[in-house]
Every structure is written in structure tokens, then in C-alpha cells.
Design a protein around this nucleic acid. Structure first.
Length: 430
RNA sequence: GCGACUAUAGUUUAGUGGUAAAACUCCGGUUUGUGGUACCGGUAUCGAGGGUUCAAUUCCCUCUAGUCGCCCCA
């Protein structure tokens, strides 16, 4: 033990993608791409490296977050660099950079790899890929509808069912603000109540009620009535005059009746303390093992403040590949397959490896994927390996074949064989 | 930052105060040009260090790593 061996484990919180994992990821990404394009969204991307200021400049709270929960370091020229923890500042920067020449509303999407330095747990790693979809440059409610329809469609395209495997929950930030204003809550109390509301699903009923009473005192009953509303019509009466109530009510009604996409009013959907200003929504995994949000998003009034220029409203959502995979696995919705070559060429002796490679390359030029087993194992092992990989065809190359230039094409699934020149055999496969 | 739990073969897991068992995988063989079956064989300083003990993989402590919660979640 003179040397310490290196571990084969990946760095903490990040993943290796072995072929079977990559196949699943490709399936997820393909579905994301297809659905985004189905809705006319255009793809953009940027580097995973950003100057740290991009994340710090949003305030003290953000500065703390950058310091404690991002990968931030100095480059060789002493510039502070951060591995991007989210895509929104990047896309805001890009949109602001070309604000004068872009045609709005803009429909953009991206699947960035994001990094966060935090404690790992189920569904939360230090690295993940996140589908980000946004519509920029409009405050029309149609954008909300389109966005939620897109989110819903993604799940439909994975073979999931709204109401069985997942559910869409919506709320309105304005409704919460109206409630707090009417109850004349102090800012601290309002913040504490929002924090509690966010945790409601995780807490016991009694425990939650006690916590609200302790935090909000006299206003507790009204707040509880609001947070326990199972339908939007159950919110306290005075809120129903509010314009945000009417907007949300119509939205829920349209989604159900015009687009057959039921959404559920859920006053506990808050989406943290970020830039959202209007309708917010989440898609929940209904599997008992995963009970959590897989997708979240909402309306924002102005994303590009930092970069000057005109106000740019928009609406967007994000969803991660880790929770997506957990969702698909838990509900048995995975259909991804590892992609094997169509043909495997097996020389009987390593002396014939080059001849086998020539044969394989002829098939490749005809558009048939082909690999050569150049290993030193016995024929039986090579064929067993090909079978296990789910290769469709095999050709064995021996001295006879090389001399006669005629080959035997073996169908691995049926066990049948066909004889002929390479040209003849190619036409059999194509 | 706080807490709980776990660590045995490549993987998933048994098990015991007297140096370990199975399944699958992998490698090799029965079968020197025809597979998926069957049979045989091979692969573990029981996470690291220390302590208790005649004896520790087993009990205790420390460390490390991982998992799962809390906090946070842009």
C-alpha cells in the first residue's frame, strides 16, 4: 500500500452517466426539446461560467446565496467567476443585450447544466440539468395559459396523466398581498406567514394551525381560511372583489373548460422570495415517495431591471432532470433504450481484425451502424456479448470469407442466416 | 450550519466476539467457427485509525465517505 488509489466515485453531488443513465437522460431531453418546439419555442444557450456579479447584484440576500451556495472562484486574472446556479440572470442578460432588435413576445427555452453548492438529499444534487422556458415581452394572460399548457404537455408527452401521476397547482402573488394588506400585517409578520404557507404541506394540521396562530395572532383565522381553501371560491369573501382574484378565477376556468387542462387552486404555492409578481404555478409529483414539486414558475414584471432599458415583463418555468427521472421511474413511465449498433462483425482470429474492420466500414458507408469485436475471446463469448447488447445482426469473418468475399449474415433475434456478397447483404438490412 | 442512519466481493445484500455467505455481474473452463441454457472454477487485508478482549468484521471512541431529514432552495 505504498500508493493511495484514486476513488472511482464521482465528485460529491454530481453524477456519472453510464450508457444506461445517458439513455434515460437523452430520452428526457428529447421529450423536452420536442415539446418546446411543439409550442414554437426557440433554443438558446450560454456558458456555464458567469461573472459572480451577475448573481450578487440582486441584493444582500443574493450575495449571501452566492457566497454560501454557489461554486465561486477566482480565475487566473483575479476575476470572480461563478458556475451558473440558475439560468434566469443569464437569459435576462442576453435578452437585455438585444432588446432593441428582438421581436417580442419572445419564446425561448434552454436546457442548461446548473451547479449549486449545497447538502445533497433525494432529488437534490449539486449539479443538475434544468429545462427553462420563458415568454418575454408580454403581460397578456394568454402567455400564462400557453406556459401552463406547455408544462402540462411535457408530462403528457412522457405518457403521464394529469390528476393521476401529477397535478398542476396555481396561486396568485397579488392575492396574498391583498390578504396581508387587508389584515394590516407588518412586513415581518407577512414574511413569516409566507414562509409558513410554503411549509404547510409538510406540517401536521394541528402543528400548522398553532404556528399560524402564534405568528399572526388575531389575523390567524382569516389566514387559515385562506390557506385551507380547496377551491378558489372558498377564499375569504373580501378577496373576491380583488382584480387578482378575478384574473386567477378566469384563468382556472379557461384552463379547464377551453383547454381541458385542469389546474388546482393551491394557496400554499408561493415559489420562494424571488421575482414573481403574478400567477405562480407548480406541478406536483403525486407518487407517495416523491410528494414534491417537479416544476415551478410564474409571472414576473421586470426581469431586466439590472441591465437598464425598458421594462420587460414575462413568464417562465423551470424543471430539473433529477426529479423528472425520479418521477418517470416511480410511475414506471420510462421507455428509454440503450442504443446498440445494428451490426457486429466478429473475426475468428485477431489476425483478421483489419479485414473485419474493412467489412464493418463498408456497412457504415451504406448507413448501417457497425462495430467490430477485436477482442481475444472465443467465438461463443463474443456472440454472447453481442446478444446481450441487443445487436440485431452479426457477421463472422474467417479466412474463407476473406478469400471468397462472400459472407454469412446472422440475424441475432431470429437465429436465421443469409449468404451473399457485402452488397447483397447490405440490401437485406437497408 | 444542525440532526438521524449506514459502511461486508464489481453490484445488491446475509451473517457472526473465534479472520465470512448468497444472488447477479465479470473473467476463465467443459466446447481451438456459431450465442442466449446447463455445469465447474476464480475474485473481499468485512471504509480508515485507535481502544476493550486471549481473540474484533462483530462491542466502544475518533475520523472519512455516503444516504436521508432540517435550514435553504434564486
Amino acid at each position: 500500500m505504498s500508493k493511495k488509489e484514486l476513488t472511482t466515485d464521482p465528485y460529491k453531488g454530481v453524477r456519472d452517466f453510464y450508457p444506461e443513465d445517458k439513455a434515460i437522460q437523452n430520452y428526457i431531453f428529447d421529450t423536452w426539446h420536442t415539446t418546446a418546439r411543439q409550442f414554437g419555442f426557440e433554443e438558446y444557450d450560454a456558458s456555464i461560467l458567469e461573472p459572480s456579479e451577475l448573481y450578487k447584484s440582486k441584493g444582500v440576500q443574493n450575495e449571501e446565496m452566492v457566497n454560501e451556495q454557489t461554486y465561486t472562484f477566482k480565475d487566473r486574472s483575479d476575476r470572480e467567476v461563478t458556475l451558473r446556479p440558475e439560468m434566469t440572470p443569464t437569459v435576462a442578460r442576453m435578452v437585455a443585450g438585444r432588446a432593441k432588435e428582438l421581436y417580442f413576445p419572445l419564446r425561448w427555452y434552454s436546457i442548461p447544466n446548473l451547479f449549486r453548492y449545497e447538502r445533497t438529499q433525494r432529488g437534490r444534487l449539486r449539479e443538475h440539468w434544468q429545462l427553462n422556458c420563458d415568454i418575454f415581452g408580454t403581460d397578456d394572460i394568454t402567455a400564462e395559459i400557453e406556459m401552463v399548457l406547455l408544462a402540462n404537455q411535457i408530462f403528457l408527452n412522457f405518457g403521464a396523466e394529469n390528476g393521476t401521476h401529477f397535478e398542476i397547482c396555481v396561486n396568485h402573488r397579488g392575492l396574498l398581498d391583498a390578504l396581508y394588506k387587508d389584515l394590516e400585517l407588518s412586513e415581518e409578520t407577512a414574511t413569516a406567514v409566507t414562509r409558513l404557507a410554503d411549509k404547510m404541506q409538510k406540517m401536521e394540521v394541528n402543528e400548522f394551525e398553532a404556528a399560524v396562530k402564534e405568528t399572526a395572532a388575531r389575523a390567524a383565522d382569516t389566514i387559515l381560511k385562506f390557506l385551507r381553501a380547496k377551491s378558489i371560491t372558498e377564499v375569504p369573501e373580501f378577496l373576491k372583489e380583488n382584480s387578482t382574484y378575478l384574473e386567477l378565477e378566469k384563468f382556472i376556468d379557461d384552463m379547464e373548460n377551453k383547454f381541458a387542462c385542469p389546474v388546482k387552486f393551491d394557496p400554499s404555492v408561493i415559489r420562494g422570495f424571488d421575482y414573481y409578481t403574478g400567477i405562480v404555478f407548480e406541478i406536483f409529483d403525486l407518487h407517495p415517495e416523491n410528494k414534491r414539486a417537479m416544476l415551478g414558475g410564474g409571472r414576473y414584471e421586470n426581469l431586466t431591471t439590472l441591465f437598464g432599458g425598458d421594462k420587460l415583463p414575462g413568464i417562465g418555468f423551470g424543471m430539473g432532470d433529477v426529479t423528472m427521472r425520479d418521477f418517470l421511474e416511480s410511475h414506471n413511465l420510462l421507455t428509454a433504450n440503450i442504443t446498440a449498433p445494428t451490426l457486429i462483425v466478429i473475426p475468428t482470429d485477431t489476425e483478421l481484425n483489419i479485414d473485419a474492420e474493412v467489412v464493418a466500414n463498408t456497412f457504415r458507408q451504406a448507413g448501417i451502424s457497425a462495430a467490430v469485436d477485436i477482442g481475444e475471446r472465443k467465438m461463443a463469448k463474443k456472440l454472447a456479448a453481442a446478444d446481450k447488447q441487443m445487436v440485431e445482426y452479426a457477421i463472422i469473418i474467417g479466412d474463407d470469407e476473406v478469400k471468397s468475399q462472400t459472407y454469412v449474415l446472422k440475424n441475432m433475434t431470429e437465429g436465421s442466416e443469409e449468404c451473399g456478397t457485402l452488397e447483397e447483404l447490405i440490401s437485406k438490412i437497408v
